[in-house]
Simulated scan of single mutants.
Amino acid sequence: MEKKELPAGLDKAVTGFERYLTGERARSEHTVRAYLSDLSSLLAYAAGEGITDPAGLELGTLRRWLGSQSEAGASRSTLARRAATARTFTSWALREELIETDPSLRLQAPKRDGSLPGVLQQQQLARLLADLNEAAKDGDPMALRNRAMVELLYATGVRVGELAGLDVDDLDPDRRTLRVLGKGNKERTVPYGLPAALAVDDWLRRGRGKLAAADSGPALFLGARGRRVDQRQVRSVVKGLFEALGDTSATGPHSLRHTAATHLLDGGADLRAVQEILGHSSLATTQIYTHVSVDRLRRSYQQAHPRA
C-alpha cells in the first residue's frame, strides 16, 4: 500500500505496525489496508502539528484529528472505526516502548449508527432463489455457479472472502459440512442443508468443468476465465440479484450472512450455535441478530394483533 510521506520516525512506526497486523494478528489484506489508511490519516495530521515520532502523540492530537474528520463529513461509524484504529496503534506502540503512556485511554468517539442490518424476508428469498433456479435450467455454467454461491452463502452465513477462498475438498458432501478458514486463520466447520448441497453438486457436475482451466487449481468457484472467483465478482452477482428484487434493503453478500443468522434465530437456534456457525469470536457480536429478530417480531405483532 502506498503511504503518505511522513517523518522518518512515524513512517518506521507504520511499517512496524503493518508487520504486527499481518504477522502476529494475522489480519486479512483488506483489514490491514483499512487500518493503514486510518493510521496514515492520523499520522499525517500529527505531522502537520509538528510531531515527528509516536512519542509526540497526545490525547489532544487524537481528539483534534477526529474532530477534523467529523467536520469533513465522516459518519459516526467511520469515526468509531478510526478511533478504534488509533487505540490499536497506541496500544501496540506502548508495548513496543515507542511511547511511555497510551494517549488513547481517554479517547472517546461517537457510538456506531444503531441501524439494523438489512435482511431478506422469507418471501423475498424464495423469489430470489426461484429466479436463480430458472436461470440454471439450461445448464449455463455461470448460472449454475451463481445459484450454488447464493445457496451456500445463505445456508452457511459465511463471509464473502471465506466463500471465495473455498476449495473443492473443503466440502464434505456425505456429512453436508463445510470447512471454513475465517478471520485470524481460525478454522471452523459449518453445516449446510439439502438445497445448498444439490445446488453445489449441480455446479460441480455440470458447470465447473466448463469453466476450469490449467490455473484453476482446487478452487470451488471459478470466474469466467477459469481462475478462482474473487470477492468483487461475488459482490457484483449478489448486488444484481438484490436490485432485481427491487423491494429490499439488503445490499450485498453480507446481507445474506445477516439473513442466515436472523432466520436461524427466528427458527429457534441457540445463540451460541449461531456464534459458532458465523465464526464470531465474541458472543456480543452475534447478539445484534437478536435485535433484528425482535424487530421483525414487533412488526409482525403490530400488523397482526387486534389491539396492537
Rank of each mutant, 00 (worst) to 15 (best):
L10V: 07
T88G: 13
A143Q: 07
G48D: 12
D295A: 15
G217Q: 08
I288Y: 05
R145Y: 05
L66A: 06
A224R: 14
R225G: 06
R272N: 14
P173A: 11
A13V: 07
L132D: 00
R25V: 07
T285W: 08
D266R: 15
R82T: 04
P191V: 04
L222R: 02
Q287I: 08
L42F: 08
A155Q: 03
R208F: 01
P141F: 03
L152A: 04
V168N: 05
S115Y: 10
R127L: 10
T259I: 05
D140R: 09
D53R: 12
D174K: 14
E29Q: 14
E162W: 02
D174W: 11
R235D: 06
L264H: 07
A214P: 02
M1Q: 13
K12L: 14
K239T: 06
G73H: 10
Q287C: 11
L265N: 04
Y35G: 03
S68G: 15
E162S: 05
K239N: 06
D113I: 10
A155S: 15
S236R: 15
D167F: 06
S28R: 04
D140L: 08
A260T: 01
S41N: 12
D11L: 12
T248P: 05
G193E: 08
G240D: 11
V237A: 04
T177W: 06
G207D: 00
V119P: 02
R188D: 07
D201P: 02
A250E: 02
L163Y: 00
A212K: 11
A83Y: 03
R228G: 04
R112P: 05
D172R: 13
L163W: 01
G50K: 09
T31V: 12
L125H: 00
A244G: 13
N185E: 14
Y20I: 07
Q233H: 10
T286W: 04
A84F: 06
G139P: 03
